[in-house]
Simulated scan of single mutants.
Amino acid sequence: MNLSAEITGVFKEVYLVGGALRDALLKRPFKDIDLAVPPSADFKARTLRLARKLGASCFPLDEEAGIYRLNQRKAPFCQLDIMPFVGGKLETDLKRRDFTINALAYKLSPGAVFTSDKKTGDFRLRLDRSKVTDLCGGLKDLAAKKVRPVSQGIFTDDPVRLLRAFRVAATLDFTVDPAALKAVKKHSALIASTAQERVREELMRLFESPVSHKWLALMHKHGLLTAIFPDLASQESCATAYYGKGGVLTHTLRVVERMDYLFENLAACLPEYKKVAELMPAPRTMKFAALLHDIAKPPKAAMIKGRLRFFGHEEFGAVMAEKVMEQLRFSREDIRLVSKIIGTHLRPGNLAANEVISDRAMFRFFRT
């Protein structure tokens, strides 16, 4: 199937926009296709007609804004989002987007060829850069590997973009523009006002980075990490004599760093990991658990016989993590898993401290 021919057969003027175009320009694969078209009275009817031609389901993501999603039922299983220009014109639409590298447009022609990988479902597209509409300097920022806001108001218009700036940079291995970092620090508290499931999705995608700990550290430097997780704020001043500057939070980020290393070097760390690969949680879920594993150390910190102790922090941490995950709208399955990991995270170390680990002890460990 020639996707471009099918799309342009229904919409004569249609533009590839957003992350799909950005990734195509970077010669990266992409899964979802974002399209923008001039507004028209028959937009919905045309969209339904396109869905029939593609053999796709069609449903509104935002009926008031006219955003529809099409999911193909057969190969190449394309997911396509289509919407009229915001503000009625392409120029207005692009200037209301989040980052310059996402504020680009490319007019599709029947000859544009989307190629798909049957195994991964990824798409690729070769295009002529000279035909890209760039009103905000996105091509220059792509070349400079920089995430820069389209305008000063993007974070107040939609606070989830505070986190998205780091997630996009982490995904592409770009840098975040210094002016954007200052704006994040100024507006970080706004992240609490946005839909928390959107925060969760951006955060979990950030954890897919092989160096997610570096991005978490940068988020903390500019006030965003503790704006998302207020319970982590007290970690920074807790147990500094033991962990050094940054206290428990420094330790927390180091544990996430070790998780990054583990999942990038599984074969070296766990030579026989393939035997249990199907049972292993997703790496991003394990990294999230690492971020919250000591969430209860500050409230459980106490001097006992001259020593700083954190008795019961793992069990109480499981309860605290459950509440955090409920606020972020995680699934019950993920909440149970992460809570269990946090609640039992001292047990492997305790077992390893024994000279001999009995079969019964191992059974009890894996039973939990």
Rank of each mutant, 00 (worst) to 15 (best):
D231I: 07
D231V: 03
D231Q: 15
D231A: 11
D231R: 09
L232H: 11
A233G: 09
A233R: 14
S234C: 10
S234M: 13
Q235C: 05
E236S: 04
E236C: 02
E236R: 03
E236V: 05
E236H: 03
S237K: 10
S237L: 05
S237E: 06
S237P: 05
C238K: 07
C238A: 07
C238V: 14
C238H: 03
A241T: 10
A241N: 05
Y242S: 04
G244P: 05
K245F: 07
K245P: 08
G246K: 00
G247M: 06
G247V: 08
L249R: 09
L249Y: 13
L249A: 11
T250P: 04
H251Y: 15
T252M: 06
T252E: 03
L253K: 08
V255A: 00
V256Q: 01
V256F: 00
E257M: 08
E257Y: 09
E257A: 12
E257G: 12
R258Y: 04
R258P: 03
M259Q: 13
M259H: 14
D260Q: 08
Y261T: 03
Y261R: 02
Y261D: 15
Y261C: 02
L262Y: 12
E264N: 10
N265A: 06
L266G: 00
A267F: 13
L270Q: 07
L270G: 05
L270H: 07
L270A: 05
P271K: 07
P271T: 14
P271D: 08
P271I: 10
E272R: 09
E272W: 10
E272I: 09
E272L: 13
Y273T: 00
K275R: 14
K275L: 10
V276T: 12
V276P: 13
V276N: 11
V276D: 07
A277P: 02
A277S: 03
E278L: 15
M280K: 08
P281M: 02
P281Q: 01
P281E: 01
P281A: 01
A282F: 06
A282C: 10
A282V: 13
P283Q: 13
P283H: 14
P283M: 14
R284I: 09
M286F: 14
K287S: 02
K287N: 00
